[in-house]
Amino acid sequence: MNSSSNLQHGNSHASALDSGIFFKAFLGLLLRDLRVLTREFLPFLLRVGMQPLLFLFVFTFILPRMGGGNPLAAGGGKTDFGTIILPGLMAVAIMFSGIAAVALPLSSEFGITREIDDRVMCPLPLWAVALEKVCFSAMQSIIAALLVIPMAIYIPAVPVRADISNWFLLALVLVLASLLAGSLGLVIGSTVNPRQIGLVFSIIVVPITFLGCVYYPWAWLDKIKWLKIAVLFNPIVYMSEGLRAAVTPSIAHMPWWAILTALVFFLAALGRWGLKGFLGRVLS
């Protein structure tokens, strides 16, 4: 009796000690990633900024000035294109940043360089190593998404009507969408071998982005019913719609509860799948 209570006491003491060490190890991993990111901060900004910059420049600056019969010409449409695609571009930035921050490095660390060994031998559970990757990538995704907002304010010919009143919803959607992108990166990075990563980009990442309600709200798909239903299986749709609800609520968007439910669902599913893949790669 006495000895068993001693044992329990010892165990709880050990687990408190362990969680302290786990936390420090997790922090160490974050610091390492931060060091690498700060060293390459300018390339990072260019990488995440170039696409939305060019997109906004071409579609909301050049085309509207061309006038004549151009559907994107200033004052032509019922709503300016800039306002429609701002949330979409944020979603794309989140998505690509998540993949670049997790899938690409992980794929080469597993395959060619085996650098992952070093981090896998850290004194914390393996799932926490994967979680760190996802969290750090989420941080980059959030920076990438926020970077799009000033661009959308200064570049378009017609000012974008961003109206962020619900900051809580914005933060929640940003965090969930970024973690979701990181989890997708984890799935790709741990299941695809480095030689095929380019192919996966072309056949999965690009299609789900283009069909992710990035360039139009989901509600406008009414005329193409089958597509309207098919895209519900695409997690990017909820990222775009969620940001639409938070950043440009004047544009038609899904109800917030549906968006959040779907984001949580896809985050759980992809997170689980990615973690399984990760464990399968580091533990035999």
Partner: peptide, 20 residues
């Protein structure tokens, strides 16, 4: 399996940080 993104010193330094 050295960390290719870190210098020799940083490889040692961050390894120590991982271990608290």
């Amino acid at each position: 399996t050295l960390d290719r993104s870190l210098t020799v010193y940083e490889n040692l330094y961050y390894h120590c940080r991982y271990f608290g």
